[in-house]
Structures are given as structure tokens and as C-alpha cells.
Amino acid sequence: MKRLLIAAGGGGDPITAALLHAALYGADAPALVLTYAWERLVVDPVPGPRRATDFTGTEPVAPGVALVTPATAPVAPAGSLLPRLARDLRPRLGLLDPYGGTRGLARQIEAAARWCRADRIDLVDVGGDIVARGDEPTLRSPLGDALAAAACAATGLPTTVHVAGPGLDNEVPLPDLLPRLGEPAFALDAAHTETVSGVFDWHPSEAGALLVAAARGVRGVCGTRDAPRPVLLDDAARQVHRLTLDRVLALSPLARALAGCASLEEAEDASRAVCGFSEIARERHRAAHPERPPGPRPAPHRPAPDAASLTDRFAAWERDALAQGIAYATTRRITEDLDLTGPQARILLAGLRTAGPVRHVPPLWRLAAP
């Protein structure tokens, strides 16, 4: 028997699901994490989620259920970090394909449950947008979470929803979010993070990194790249809230609107009706009009990275960040704010690491006053 967990939103949510699996059942308990291959344009320049046919080397184990392995690879021009996650995380990873809407997802989840011999589901969300009303001005990516909730309901399997790190995704304001979540069920600590400790050396997920940092005792204001405002890491940021699926459906108009949905296009229509936007349409627009080309930063016609100049650039950026009250920063925030290529980022961060623990507070970076 394997535990069946579903990472509600894609991107870094499989990491949080693996973290929650270790906290709930023990890191060595057999488990399958179903997740979307739906990643930021900086990782996958093709808008929207990927499906199994967008990969080579997946492992089919049940009708509509394909596992991602370290040998799996996305078909160009798509990109994905899931094969590398499959190498670094202990639970097996399986693909959720939302192109058949809620109905298609429900069939996949049912098939996965039979393969796992699981009689219940743990649905995992980091941040809390799974309980969004849809009218929050900071809401950016509710569709995957709402589809997962609606699909779990359609299976009829008992489902527990776990919201970890309330507010860390910066989508639903905390004063609105916390009353919806109720009292926390438990708190994560440093021991729970051991199984994902090396992932954030290379994975850009910011909400996941913030959750790990909070569990390890980091406290203070952290600047992220993919959020409208800094995030406060306090004791509440390491809490996990447990909700019934009925409670989530009562809170989420979008999840209710997706009941019976038979395609991703129908799901987009429901999102426009409830939330006023389609996040896939937004991705299409950003891909067509990028602030910078998505994907790995190229370095044509640039001089060789110079450690001293990189340090000077970082110092100027750091002074500005400190003036804004920011005490910590994610790797992604530093890399993208400074517009660093891969080699430049490696040189700068290696230099910061040699400054000792005062700088590197894995997976975050502590800013230091001059």
C-alpha cells in the first residue's frame, strides 16, 4: 500500500507534499504524489500545463497514470523540473493531466488510488489559495488547486486537505485567510525538512523555500520575486491547517463551479466567470510579451563573470532591500533582481556562502547591514 497525496497547484507543491508526507507518515513510508506539470514560464516557456505526451520516458502504471522518473524528459520547447524532483524526492511522482477537466482528473485519481491500494487522499496546498473566494486582488493561480479539489470530490474517496504555511504564496491576504482555515493542526519543525533539504539548491519555488525556512526557525521579513509584497516569516508560517474537503468546497466558488467540467477550456471559462480571469490566458500573454525571455538566462557577448563586480552589484541591491525593511531574500529574488546569468549567480552565491552562516540560512539568504 502507498499513501496517495495530491500536490494541488503544481510548481513547487510536490516538494511541500513530500515534506507533509514525511511529517504525517514518516519519510520512508511508500507514497505517490500526483502533481501537475505546470511550472512558471522561467522553467517552462510554454503556457499552461503539460501532459504525459509532452514527456519522454514516463512510466505508465495504470490507465491515465504516468509516473515521472529521473530518466523522464520534457519534449522541446517545453521545460520541466519534475524529472529532477523525481530524483531528489522520496515519494514517487505521477502526472495530473487537467485537459480532461474535473472528470478526467477524477478518473486519473481513482486509477492511482487503485494502483496504490489507497482508500483515502491527502490534498496538499502551500499558502492557502485553495480556499480563495476568487475576488482577492492578489489572487494569481487558483485554477489548479480548485480543479484538484473538485476532482477529489468527484472520486468520492475520503479526502483531507492540508494547507501548509498560510499566506506564503502571497495570494490571499492573511486577515482574510486565517479565519477560513481555523486553528492549526500541527507545526512543522527542522526535522521534517530533512528529506527536502537539498532541493532548494536548484529549485526556484519560493513558497516552498519559505515554508522550509519557517520550519527551521527563520524569523523576519523576506523578499520574494513572485509576490507583490514581502512575506513575514513568523511562527504561524510553519503551521499546517487541516480541513475537510466539504469545508474547502464551501469556501471555494471556483471549485464548486468546476463540478462536472469535462475539459480545460471549460475550466478556463469557469475561472473567468468566478475570478474574472484565466491564468492560462495570462501566461499566454506573458509568453508573447515577456519582460525578459523565459527559460535559462543566456550569456552571449558578455564578459566573463567577475566576482568583485558581482559583489558590488549585490551590495548596492542589498542596501536598497534593507531600506525596505527586508531581512532575508530567496535565491530567485536575488538572481532575477540582479538579472544574473547562471554562471554569475553561481559565483555570487558561492561568495556569499563563504561569508559563513551569517549570510546563508538555507534555503534563504540573510541580508546584512554594512
Results as ranks from 00 to 15, higher is better:
Asp44Ala: 08
Val61His: 11
Arg51Phe: 00
Pro49Cys: 11
Asp44Cys: 10
Ala29Leu: 01
Leu41Thr: 04
Pro49Tyr: 13
Val46Met: 13
Ala31Trp: 10
Thr53Phe: 05
Thr69Cys: 04
Pro70Val: 05
Val65Thr: 03
Thr53Lys: 12
Pro60His: 07
Ala78Gly: 13
Val61Cys: 10
Arg51Ala: 14
Ala31Thr: 03
Asp54Tyr: 01
Phe55Gly: 13
Val42Tyr: 09
Pro74Ser: 09
Val43Phe: 07
Val68Lys: 00
Ala78Met: 04
Val43Arg: 08
Leu34Glu: 01
Val61Phe: 09
Leu41Gly: 14
Trp38Ala: 05
Leu32Ser: 12
Ala62Asn: 08
Val65Lys: 03
Val61Gly: 13
Pro47Phe: 10
Arg40Lys: 13
Val68Pro: 10
Tyr36Arg: 05
Val33Cys: 08
Ser80Cys: 10
Leu67Ala: 12
Arg40Trp: 12
Leu41Met: 10
Ser80Thr: 09
Pro30Lys: 06
Ala31Val: 06
Pro70Ser: 05
Pro74Glu: 08
Pro45Met: 08
Thr53Trp: 09
Ala71Tyr: 00
Asp54Arg: 08
Pro60Tyr: 06
Pro60Lys: 04
Thr35Ala: 14
Gly57Asp: 06
Asp44Arg: 03
Val43Ser: 03
Ser80Ile: 05
Leu34Tyr: 01
Ala52Arg: 13
Pro30His: 08
Leu32Phe: 10
Gly64Thr: 13
Asp54Gly: 12
Thr58Cys: 15
Thr53Cys: 11
Thr72Cys: 02
Ala62Pro: 05
Val65Pro: 04
